[in-house]
Simulated assay, not measured.
Amino acid sequence: MGRRKKISTAQPVLLSVAEVAIMLGVCRTTVCQYLNHEGLLSILLRGVRRIHPDSLYE
């Protein structure tokens, strides 16, 4: 019997623009528009934009 690979069910603390686009069912450009014009909160970490999941519900 082989070892089974464990699948993580934990959700990430911060999401990338691509992950947010998948969650919302829109393209990355639309998420960028939300960031620039609609006030979607995000942070910049080492040149990569990250979004907290709670800000998607606000």
Rank of each mutant, 00 (worst) to 15 (best):
H37E: 09
V48Q: 13
Q33A: 15
V20N: 00
I43F: 13
V31A: 00
N36G: 06
Q33P: 11
A10F: 13
D54N: 09
S55I: 07
R49E: 00
L35Y: 05
L14H: 10
M1W: 03
L56M: 03
H52S: 02
S16W: 05
E38T: 13
S8D: 15
M23S: 10
I51R: 00
P12K: 12
Y34T: 03
H52L: 02
T9N: 15
L35K: 05
I43E: 11
L56E: 02
G39H: 03
Y34W: 10
E19V: 03
Q33C: 15
D54F: 08
V13D: 13
V31E: 00
Q11C: 13
L14C: 11
S8G: 12
C32R: 12
Y34M: 08
V31M: 01
E58A: 14
R49M: 02
I51S: 01
M23I: 13
S55T: 09
G2F: 12
S42Q: 03
I22V: 14
R50K: 06
R50M: 07
R50N: 05
C32V: 10
G47Q: 05
S42E: 01
I22Y: 12
M1H: 08
Q33T: 15
R28M: 09
S55Y: 04
N36A: 08
I43V: 13
V48R: 15
G2L: 11
I22H: 12
L15K: 01
I7P: 09
H52E: 02
T29C: 08
E19P: 01
R4D: 06
G47I: 05
A10S: 13
I22E: 15
M1I: 10
R4A: 08
R49W: 03
K5I: 15
K6F: 09
C27T: 10
Y57D: 07
R4F: 04
M1L: 07
A18F: 10
L24V: 04
N36Q: 08
L56N: 00
L35Q: 04
G25D: 01
K6P: 06
V20E: 01
S16G: 05
I51H: 00
G2D: 12
L14Q: 09
S16R: 03
I51W: 01
A18H: 09
R50Q: 05
E38Y: 13
G47K: 04
I43W: 08
R46E: 06
D54L: 09
P12G: 07
N36R: 11
L41H: 10
E19R: 05
D54V: 08
A21M: 03
V48M: 12
L14F: 14
G39N: 02
L45A: 08
T29L: 09
L35W: 02
G39M: 01
I51F: 01
A18L: 08
T30G: 04
L45M: 11
Y57G: 06
E19L: 06
C27P: 04
D54I: 07
R28P: 04
P53E: 07
A21Y: 01
Y34I: 05
V17F: 02
S42D: 02
E19K: 04
L44Q: 12
V17H: 02
R46P: 04
R3W: 14
R28E: 12
S8F: 10
L15E: 02
K6T: 11
G2T: 10
L24R: 03
V26L: 06
S16Y: 05
V48W: 11
G2V: 11
C32N: 14
